[in-house]
Amino acid sequence: MELAILGAALEGGADAEFYGYAIARQMQAGDASRLLTSHGTLYKALDRLVKAGLLTSRWEDAQVAADEERPRRRLYRLTAAGESALRQAERAAASASAALVEGFQPL
């Protein structure tokens, strides 16, 4: 879940800010068969990522939300550590996948 969030965040742009519901929609768009991520799973994962320093978060300006007549959003942003952790995980997955394919090659 954490990697999916980081991946979706990076797709939106390394410097872009996002909020919970938007990231849930983006993750669903990446895999059309899945349901929207549940509240508990999503916000628990976001909380962990913030605590691990892979994301930063801030509450948006109350005036902006009031102007648009909606509740305030909690905005998240990918940190450099988050981006690097994602790249590392992607490299590890790619190398594991390559090793697996190699193992099935005929001798």
């Binding site: 349901l35 929207l36 991520t37 549940s38 509240h39 508990g40 799973t41 999503l42 916000y43 628990k44 909380d47």
Partner: peptide, 16 residues
């Protein structure tokens, strides 16, 4: 969808 997201997330909420 809202009901499903709430129900399915309950174990994670409890763990959090």
């Amino acid at each position: 969808e809202m009901a499903l997201r709430c129900f399915l997330g309950m174990p994670a909420d409890a763990a959090w």
